[in-house]
Amino acid sequence: MKILVTGASGFIGGRFARHALEQGLEVRVNGRRAEGVEHLVKRGAQFVQGDLTDPDLARRLCIGVEAVVHCAGAVGQWGRYQDFYRGNVEVTENVVEACLKEHVRRLVHLSSPSIYFDGRSHLGIREEQVPKRFFDHYSKTKFMAEQKVFGAAEFGLQVLALRPRMVTGAGDMSIFPRLLKMQHKNRLAIIGNGLNKVDFTSIQNLNDALVSALHVGEAALGKAYNISNGAPVPVWDVVNYVMRQVHLPQVTRYRSFGLGYSAAALNEFACLLWPGRPQPTLSRLGMHIMNKDFTLDIARARHHLDYAPTVSLWAALDEFCGWWKAQEHRGRQ
């Protein structure tokens, strides 16, 4: 099978493209940074550089491929709506249109469980529990992108969407790096009582789910799937495990949610006024994430994708910490 992986210069797209090559698939990759995919080219991937906001490029990328795994998109908690709309909705529209014009058989879309977030604690969230209003630009535009994907099913494109929660492993730059930098400066504190449970996803388990999504039968199509390790843990236990592994002091200070939320709101307001609108160190969403229960029901993925997470969170964290320490060591040389 020949596939296209978008966003391959990023963490998830890059790790999946490597996994697909190891599985014997023929892989074409796209990304904005050539240096981010050199390791994939060395393993046999075909690289086509370019910006997916260009519909002509998207169509060229889809020529001759049987399936697309769409991992590209705008991520983060901070930024302008138009940037998130362009990176998530417009790019996905271009990919969908290219798939239809080039008769690609299947599109597997990487979405996000951030669409569920409404500022409250939730345990065992099911795929249909999408709120009427979205918390931020990212979650809104990710849901809009999903709808573009599912809308293509009526034109014959086989579609699925995966919503993986807090993916980690070697190469992860989204979850722990900022927390590690804050703890280096002794600025990190436990928000609330520190007992809130959350889901994580080992990158190897997500890779298995994506491969399954490429091959599953008709009954699995046209659906969104929650993906996680299926074993919720207190988030601060995870944070302190990482701190121990990289030889930093554990987080022991506590801060009330109200105080943390107010400080984050002030920080965001100051960044809005500052030239260039830099990303705030503290955010209101971050306070919610570090204080609220947030776990997923993965029964649908278990049933339709035969998804059975085998790699533990602790193994994924060990992989991340080994990689992080190696990066720091190289940086000191």
Rank of each mutant, 00 (worst) to 15 (best):
K2C: 10
C99W: 04
S283Y: 01
Q333C: 04
H303R: 12
A161H: 01
L266V: 08
D293A: 01
L259W: 15
S202Q: 13
G322N: 15
R253Y: 12
G331W: 14
R330W: 09
V29P: 02
A231C: 12
L162G: 02
V75K: 10
L259C: 15
A270I: 11
R133H: 14
N226P: 02
D136G: 06
G79D: 08
V95A: 00
R60F: 05
G260E: 04
Q279W: 08
E268K: 08
R105K: 15
V91H: 07
R15T: 02
E97Y: 04
N196P: 02
G286F: 03
N226H: 07
S283T: 15
S283L: 09
E22N: 09
A219W: 12
K148G: 04
I227R: 02
L61W: 01
A72R: 03
A145F: 05
Q183V: 04
Y116D: 00
M173L: 11
R330Y: 10
N94A: 07
T168S: 07
H70I: 04
F117N: 06
N196K: 09
H288V: 05
L195N: 13
Q77W: 13
E102K: 11
K101R: 15
K181A: 09
W324Q: 05
D237E: 14
L57Y: 05
D293S: 07
K42H: 08
R105I: 08
D208P: 11
P113E: 08
Q23H: 12
F135K: 13
L259R: 14
T168H: 02
R105S: 14
A301E: 01
N94L: 00
A152W: 00
G171V: 03
I298K: 03
D208F: 06
S9Q: 02
A220R: 08
